[in-house]
Simulated scan of single mutants.
Amino acid sequence: MEPSWEHPCAQLKWFSSSIRRPTALAWLNTYRLSFRHLYLVQKLRSELAKRYKVGLVGVAHPHVWGVLRSLRESDKGMLTAASLDKPSSESDSERLRREHGLGKLYGNYREMLDEEDIDIVFNYADHILRTPVTELAASKGLHIMVEKPMAYSLKDAERMLEAAKKNNVKLMVNWPTMWFATYRKVHELVENGKIGRIFHIRMRVGHNSCEEEGFTGSCFQWMGQKEAGGAYLDFCCYGVAFAVWLIGMPKRVFGTAGNFVKSFIPSYDNGIVVMIYDCGTAVVEGTWSQIGGIPAGPEICGTKGTICFDADEAMIFTKLKSEVIRVDPLPQEESNAVEYFLTRIEGDKIIGGMCDPKFSRDVQEVLEAGLISSEKGKVVAMPLGT
């Protein structure tokens, strides 16, 4: 039913709620309205054409290129500015210009945030800049997305969380595993008690991509610094996050991190975290020195069955049978980090799951406990400080 045409607000509400976007655009382009309604048309057109303007800070983590590809394909946002604070290279600049049509590229994130009219910051700076970039962006009222892990220390994670809360902006942590339908399905099965009470989780993540030749100038040059955590933070974070997502925070943590193969890296090329619960454990492994793509998807052991899965499929084993689990594709608005984040901003919705910064702060605490354990050679009680 059409509203009373005597009240402009009623007209705008009817336009925005009753007409689908393509239909509305066609209608506005073909239907003649009186002059007293033109301002409503202009306002509605502006809303329909709304695309969030994104500013990029850094290309330190290689996941940034996949995120930018998703942004380029989205109708909700566009990259309008970038600051290539170190570490970066001329090839990074060329790629941004070629793939995203950017002209001016900043060399200092503060200058970009001061000069550019943007709505969102994709913070892909290194471990030194990630927290100050987040704090400055939040102080300017900008929403922020960062890559996993949330930070490189618990203190930094808490600073970022506080900055977002203080300035009432959204902060999201991109965990790539959130965009695999199998992970979501397995979480649903565990929540519904499909395999009973969980008493053990095992997850190993690794590769052998970090080589001495080409190390300088690569992402590993900064990720391999001692304070950046090396393979320990880069890959153990996945398993820790998954375990916390499924069964919560552990009571105690034991960790070990070392450089066993790649001596040219200042930090760790291997790490293990053992999360100890009242009635179970989770064992998480991360490596930069594993040769070959060894199948090592998560294993979840429950009192009624076991689930094994990877990015493509999942299987459930019980005493009576084993079966492949049917997994439906994720909805478009949750298919990747960009769509999820922009949809949450657009609808002012809560950021949930592993992308919740409060959740990621807890993951950071477990990771830090593991490093403390590795340094001291003993089990660490949780929460830290107890």
Rank of each mutant, 00 (worst) to 15 (best):
Q221R: 05
E211M: 12
M150D: 05
M150R: 10
K165G: 02
K140C: 02
G206L: 08
F220K: 01
K194Q: 07
K166I: 01
I198V: 15
T182A: 00
V133C: 07
G196D: 10
L189Q: 03
A181D: 10
E212K: 15
V173H: 01
M172K: 01
E191R: 15
R204W: 07
R159H: 12
V133M: 01
R184V: 06
V173G: 00
N192G: 00
V173Q: 05
A137W: 07
R204M: 13
Y183W: 12
H200L: 13
F220S: 01
K170I: 02
P132R: 10
D156K: 06
I201R: 07
L154V: 14
N167S: 10
M172S: 05
E135W: 08
Q221K: 02
V186S: 03
E188W: 10
P149K: 06
P176G: 10
S139Q: 08
S153M: 12
M150A: 13
F220C: 04
K148T: 08
S153K: 09
C219A: 14
Y152T: 10
N168I: 06
H187Q: 15
L171Y: 09
S218G: 09
Y183H: 15
M172V: 01
R197F: 00
V205Q: 11
L154E: 08
R197H: 08
H207E: 10
I144E: 00
R130N: 10
G141T: 11
Q221G: 03
H187K: 14
Y152W: 13
M178R: 01
G214V: 06
R204C: 07
M178W: 03
R130Y: 02
L154I: 06
L154A: 13
M150C: 09
S218H: 09
A163E: 09
S218P: 00
S209A: 12
D156H: 12
C219E: 12
V190I: 14
W222D: 03
R197P: 00
E158N: 11
L189R: 06
M150I: 15
M160F: 04
F215I: 08
N168E: 15
C219S: 15
I198M: 04
A163F: 10
L129S: 11
K170F: 03
